[in-house]
Write a protein that binds this DNA or RNA. Structure first.
Lengths: 215, 215
DNA sequence: TGACAAAACAAACGACCGTGCGATATCCAT
DNA sequence: ATGGATATCGCACGGTCGTTTGTTTTGTCA
């Protein structure tokens, strides 16, 4: 008795494995067709299952959408955030994050671009759990930026007077701007432009700090 | 014979008037629910017509979507672009444009935000006439920015060495960044931050120009 | 191997989708 | 006032949506 499904017991149950396969495909389809446009029937076809079998893993479309957002967030944390956090906090960590994000954009160019930017703008006017989850994800991304910037100020890489929130807003804007240029307008140099803008902004701040220190 | 419908003859035919009413509602619904999620039945309900009667004005959903994009573009030109072009070309015109755009965002906060940002990110992976139209609209917006910046360089408000395309990218990024902050994250200061970032960037360039001239 | 739970399937449901069509109502020129 | 074009309606179609249900396959442990 008691099949031992104590959640951490079974390494990876059969059901859990296919559930993850479904969600991997769902993240891709969701980024291209939208989270609402993503259909259970098409998702089932894409993963090679029946509609009913696919549906049974979630029980409702809302639950599927939430699980998809969560999966995309996990992927993003692994692909972009975690590697960036390996670098020492400060300007270097910020650059590691933005470079990682731009690489993420490049990898996903033919798979719908940044999952969160697309989904966030789709749901920004649709109250509900999905929007809340997306908002939390975007805010988590901003927190990483703010963390790196705060450390940079603390390490005196940036002037003590730096408005971290303001600068974080600008960095986030460059990220989403790069997304639009890269994904919709297909500008080949969008990522490079974002990089250059960030460079210029950081250099300006350091320069201003030097000037101020000189007096 | 020849009912005299020479396109510019009739002041505003009955059909044309309701067609415009439909499209006005379509722009609003499209910004909140997405251009694909926008449904002919719901659109008809919202405007108080029958589904068939509404549909007859366009003949296909694609045609409705294209007309909706065109209507939104016309509104944007009237609300934002035209007033900006009243100002003398250069930095002042650029500020008039961005301020007009931010006011446009504020007006539409409860109506789906910027129609083009939302629609562009929805269709950036869906080839077809709708995407082409949206791409053209976004590029037209960028052209306004570049035009003002080019004039600013010509009028020596910005250094001769200014990379206009680079700066235009940054301005566009601030616009879409303001959109995300304002619409999804509901940051009350998103528009102000975008304004401040633009100020700082322009001031930096002018300052660098002064420095260079001093030598 | 046999029993039992988990997983996947096939079929069906009501609702709504885009679309087409004939009937009706409304407008305008004569 | 009336006839013909124009505009709107009401209904129906095939298809797909999310969801439910009952059955069959698959996997696992005694």
């Amino acid at each position: 008795m008691v099949t031992g499904m104590g959640r951490a017991a079974a390494r990876l149950s059969h059901g859990e494995r296919t559930r993850r396969e479904i969600l991997d495909v769902a993240v891709q389809l969701g980024a291209t067709e939208g989270l609402e446009g993503l259909t259970i029937g098409r998702l089932a076809d894409a993963v090679g299952l029946s509609k009913g079998g696919t549906y049974a893993h979630f029980g409702s479309k809302l639950s599927l959408q939430l699980a998809t957002v969560e999966t995309a967030l996990t992927q993003f944390q692994e692909e972009v955030v975690a590697p960036a956090l390996q670098h020492p906090p400060g300007v270097e960590q910020l650059r590691a994050f933005t470079d990682g994000y731009f690489a993420y954009l490049e990898r996903r160019r033919d798979r719908g671009g940044c999952f969160f930017t697309a989904a966030a703008l789709e749901f920004d006017d649709r109250p509900g759990e999905v929007r809340d989850a997306l908002r939390a994800a975007v805010e988590a991304r901003d927190a990483v930026i703010k963390g790196a910037l705060g450390a940079a100020v603390e390490a005196k890489e940036l002037p003590r007077t730096t408005d971290v929130d303001q600068l974080a807003f600008e960095v986030a804007a460059l990220c989403v701007g790069a997304n639009v240029g890269h994904q919709l307008l297909r500008q080949s140099d969008a990522l490079e432009r974002a990089r250059r803008a960030l460079d210029a902004r950081l250099q300006q701040l350091s320069y201003a700090a030097l000037e101020r220190r000189r007096k």
